[in-house]
Design a protein around this nucleic acid. Structure first.
Ligand SMILES: [Mn+2]
Ligand SMILES: [Mn+2]
Ligand SMILES: [Zn+2]
Ligand SMILES: [Zn+2]
Lengths: 143, 143
DNA sequence: TTAACTCTTTAGAAAGAGTCTATTTCCCAT
DNA sequence: ATGGGAAATAGACTCTTTCTAAAGAGTTAA
């Protein structure tokens, strides 16, 4: 249903652009994530990579996702108290989160703007703004 | 530093208003939470209640916080991947989250408005909107 | 070629938040 | 007092994430 991967060459290029040593495991995880803009949990990454025949350990998946987030290749989305989502779409945008089925989806950036940025607490700098619109309804998760 | 409790009578009244049977444990947790608007984790609630001399189990703290959330007495704030915060301020408002020290603070509601509500995904209803402004800086957590 | 070195990966143990279960306790109506 | 439903409890358990100690890969230097 979702088996397309980004090319190996493209994955390597993306890693090198961010000064990430393109190891086998990092390449295959990048090919999976950057096949298209998507939201994946660590467990989904692990299962998808293993299904593709490459052996990657759980620790490496976590290490790699953290590294990618640190280097700005993916963005962590904190919205479900039970797990972190990694977003391969790093264009600034916000999210719908369906609390009935756990589905996370992007909000068209044009359709949501903040009126103004509030003054930040003293001595702090802006890191980012996350808007989550929680919705209910639709079928339960189909996984 | 933070020992004031809401009165027992007030706590009981708040519980009864929401059709919650005012048991000993629920009353003392309510006295703690509603002493003032604040954000607490389950663990903080457990420790504070136990410090006050009342014996309450971990399971009861979780059950009670879930019940309060379900009944609308508190609001869950999902912002830190390692734990849920319970907000005793249920007036609609948004949050600053300091990723360096884990501090959660309220944004004055007047200073942050959404320009418009995007169209929701088909077949879904609005549950709520959470805006989190992540900031960096200041000392690490003082706990 | 081998040795040394650094970086990465790995299995599995460990940590921590949250949930579940079986039992006991509490509270109230009779 | 007693019976019964609701709530609380200890502690086992689950699940995500992190840590640890050891093995592997790749690179450079002799
Ligand atoms: Mn959790
Ligand atoms: Mn976690
Ligand atoms: Zn997204
Ligand atoms: Zn708040």
């Amino acid at each position: 249903m979702n088996n397309q991967l980004a090319s190996k060459a493209e994955a390597i290029r993306m890693l090198q652009e961010r000064d990430i040593n393109p190891t086998q495991q990092r390449i295959v995880i990048a090919q999976l994530l950057f096949a298209r803009p998507q939201h994946m949990s660590a467990e989904q990454v692990l299962m998808n990579v293993q299904d593709s025949g490459v052996h990657v350990s759980k620790a490496t998946v976590y290490n790699t996702l953290s590294l990618f987030a640190e280097k700005g290749l993916v963005k962590e989305v904190i919205v479900d108290p039970t797990k972190v989502f990694y977003d391969s779409n790093i264009v600034p945008h916000h999210h719908f989160f369906n609390i009935d089925n756990g589905q996370l989806s992007d909000i068209d950036d044009a359709s949501l703007q903040l009126q103004a940025m509030p003054q930040l607490p003293d001595g702090t700098q802006l890191d980012g703004v996350d808007v989550i619109i929680r919705v209910r309804g639709q079928q339960q998760a189909q996984a």
